[in-house]
Write a protein that binds this DNA or RNA. Structure first.
Lengths: 395, 395
DNA sequence: GGCACTTCGTTGCACTGGACAAAAAAGTGG
DNA sequence: CCACTTTTTTGTCCAGTGCAACGAAGTGCC
């Protein structure tokens, strides 16, 4: 709209995005990818390099026999980093990510007193500062991203409601900004991971995607050509209470057969426990058992994958994205689950283009840290020229 | 991206959009609404007025007691028009719309030979030319919009598949452009109507909306902040085969209980006919009977509205738009149906903000013509400075 | 009527950022 | 060392915006 102010970063964002997706890449190639003129690419690269976001990587591409060789540029991962705090039921996950979204340091901090959100956040912030000082003191932090389940008001940086923690209207953004001195952004982890998959994951070249998250909560996020779709009340992707689950199971919402009540980590682990497959109701244990070859455990996770597949098929038909990415323990860890998921989608959906349009999450067990950091990385890639004067952690 | 070419119209589009939504409006108000400077508003207004899209309407706003009076501008509806052709099972609906999306002339042309798409389109084009000459010869046509059910390739202007007509891969755009000499755009009518509701209907000030169309086909369209969401295969909004219908009804797709098989015009009319409510299976007759006070007919349409409501609730939960607009005969014509629809959504959806977020279509019985014309109007409002040199109809 | 006052709309000027074109750079092969 | 190719940079121009100063068009007071 206003090239002098708001829209300033758009061309730079296109350039940086192309560099992120296409590894070390020559400027002419960037020009082709973005539709910008070579001149504009040069100038934007210079600006981005000046901020320390891009770097020249001479010799990283083979010479093609004729003409001046490429002088490729790549994302600079050695100067800056982004911090992430994921807030879950029992612990916070801290992470430091480079600009390629790779986790360079991680730490899990159990809550001492989950009811005292000030203490939880203060501890997380302090441990984060220490993590930075101990592992990557030379990297300058550009910001902090916060991800959580539940209902998040992104604008205000407020965690409106986190059911399992019982937090309500916690100004997470302000509290953490005050404690760390960093710019803080907050978002739901389903949305954050959707964007992370698009930026750093397997869904890189796709314009639209849906991310389906199955953990203690079930949540979906939608990204279309126009960007992440937040929805009228920041509540888009409400698949938790679709009637796709077991009709015999009562949901706290008052109805039966809700997806979340059936397939959430807790519900499924409890079911496996009651069936005698695992000694205690822990979804991680169920995963371990299946990976170790326990047939009953595998069968249970495959069944869960099928139920999740019905939800994915529904999302395919309604939203018709290029890909659906699924974050669920079994699908991530077991090929059988991923196959069952794909088969169910193919059987249920009317438009799913091919089984390869259903992807397990790319981030393995780092999902939570990546989700949190990506909240900030998303903003940086959206308007790279707008990064704040780097501030040192801990002031 | 490129202010000299593609993005040129963005500011002008913002201005024209604000004028469209806020009736006759002063330039300073436009500046406030769009975030542009008064200077930019002046210049863009001049450009738009030069193209005949805007007009000065002195004295249309009351004087506010102090200072220079407003000199309001409004959309110019007296110089240009847009043509629309809606292709349905039994007839084409032709319409001439002004720039406010109002139907100024209409004509229904039954197909002589539905299998001969060339003849159908040629007839429609010729009748359209005559309609223009007879009713609004002084208005210059800016283009032709074509809407149809089924699967449309917007890019190529091809009707890929129209089930009930049996057309496949018909290059509607090229054929009509050749016959009329007008620029032609083609889209599905669910998407076209969604955009029409946003431009001219009750959903004007909302950024995101879902339009649910229930006729001989059932289809939905999604508009988010980023614009109309077409989906990977132009197939977004596939609610036709959701299992929300009567499990006893078989769908041609091979499964049971599909929404479309249950509530399509044809299916419901047949059901009413078999129940002895109406003498022949016509949905229009059922609507007339209900309006005339036939209790059984009303009850049937209310039941249909409830089923449609379940689909609307699902869309609310998954997409979480500001509003859902429903185009369905009963909901448009009978208050009881609209109430039943709202009640069902409120009871089924988890996030539906209020009953007023469910709206019946704004266009009454002109829906088809508005849908078609809006395909072209959408393009004009997206980049108003890009309108073609006005060409006279009929070469 | 003339003049202060208020608000709206327009014009002049500087700036940003991109395209286009020409020049420079950096290789190879003769 | 030169011709040749392709990449990258630099110089110039132009569109479009914001800012600020200015002109315009009313009211109300004297």
């Amino acid at each position: 709209m206003n090239p002098g102010v708001a829209g300033r970063g758009t061309a730079a964002a296109a350039v940086l995005g192309a560099v992120l997706r296409h590894g070390p890449v020559a400027r002419t190639t960037i020009a082709r990818l973005t539709g910008l003129s070579p001149a504009a690419v040069t100038r934007n690269c210079a600006a981005l390099a000046g901020l320390g976001l891009l770097t020249e990587v001479a010799g990283s591409l083979p010479y093609r026999g004729m003409g001046r060789p490429h002088s490729p540029v790549d994302v600079e991962t050695g100067r800056h980093l982004v911090a992430g705090i994921h807030i879950a039921h029992e612990y916070c996950t801290l992470a430091l990510l480079d600009l390629r979204g790779r986790v360079r340091a991680r730490l899990r901090v159990p809550h001492r007193d989950p009811d005292d959100h000030r203490e939880v956040l203060a501890t997380a912030a302090d441990r984060l500062v220490r993590l930075h000082a101990e592992h990557l003191p030379g990297h300058v932090p550009l910001g902090l991203g916060v991800a959580a389940g539940g209902w998040v008001d992104t604008e205000a940086g407020v965690l409106v409601e986190h059911a399992s923690l019982g937090w309500r209207d916690v100004p997470v953004g302000d509290l953490l900004a005050a404690r760390t001195g960093l710019p803080v952004l907050v978002d739901s982890h389903a949305r954050a991971l959707a964007r992370a998959e698009q930026l750093f994951g397997a869904a890189g070249h796709h314009g639209s995607l849906v991310h389906l998250f199955v953990g203690n909560v079930v949540d979906a996020a939608i990204i279309t050509g126009g960007g992440t779709h937040r929805g009228a009340r920041s509540a888009a992707g409400g698949v938790a209470h679709l009637a796709l689950g077991d009709p015999a199971i009562e949901c706290p919402c008052g109805r039966n057969g809700c997806l979340e009540a059936t397939v959430s980590d807790l519900a499924w682990a409890r079911r496996a426990h009651e069936a005698g497959v695992i000694p205690r109701p822990s979804i991680a244990d169920l995963g371990d058992a299946a990976v170790a070859g326990n047939a009953a455990a595998t069968a249970l996770l495959v069944e869960r994958a099928r139920t999740v597949g019905r939800a994915a098929a529904l999302l395919f038909d309604i939203v018709n994205p290029d890909v659906v990415v699924v974050t669920e323990l079994g699908v991530i860890r077991l090929r059988e689950c991923a196959d069952a998921l794909r088969a169910e989608v193919a059987a249920t959906s009317r438009v799913c283009p091919s089984p390869s349009a259903v992807l397990p999450s790319s981030f393995g067990l780092d999902v939570l840290g990546v989700a949190a950091g990506s909240v900030q990385l998303d903003a940086i890639y959206a308007d790279p020229l707008d990064i704040r004067n780097p501030i040192r952690l801990g002031v």
